[in-house]
Amino acid sequence: MDLFALAFYAFAILIVGCAAIMVFSKNIIHSAFALMFTLGGLAVFYALLYAGFVAVTQLLVYVGGILVLILFGVMLTTQGYFDKVQTRTVNLLPATIFAAIIGILLIFVYLSTDWTLNPLEDGEVTLTGLGELLLTDFMLPFQVTGVLLLLAIIGAVLMAARTRPPLQASQPAPKAGPESQKE
């Protein structure tokens, strides 16, 4: 077994294991961190396939960006900062049906695919070609995506920006806080 195979199987176990944790964990934060390992492991797979750029993009976008966003979302929207963030199973029936359909689909795809393995081509620089394609053939989609993302950012800023109720300095001495009333 060469090093590639070793890495492949090690990371395959990691990905599947973390994906399972992500799905079955009761703690939503644990799920989020498990997702990080799943996404990171996928990046390793890309790297093993000599798709360096895709691997790095996977890391940067999913782990560095989207995951941080998910964590933020989970941490900031739950009730209380330190309550154990629990998930529970809802919509059991629709979910089961949906999962079954997806499962059947995947099995179908797996069975119907003609699994011929192409030998890996080492050391091919994909980056230049990628860049050229983006700036020639796919110029329009590339730019449209950019504009779309920009709009999304502006929209998000508009939604998040809120006027704070003015806090006045030198207002009368504040009443005892909730903690002191409790005592």
Partner: peptide, 23 residues
């Protein structure tokens, strides 16, 4: 015991977003 959790009721800022204060 651990850090005390004091929850204040979510504050309605009037624009639909509710925020919660931390003590």
């Amino acid at each position: 015991k651990g850090p005390e959790v004091t929850l204040t009721p979510p504050r309605d800022t009037g624009k639909g977003l509710k925020t919660q204060e931390m003590v």
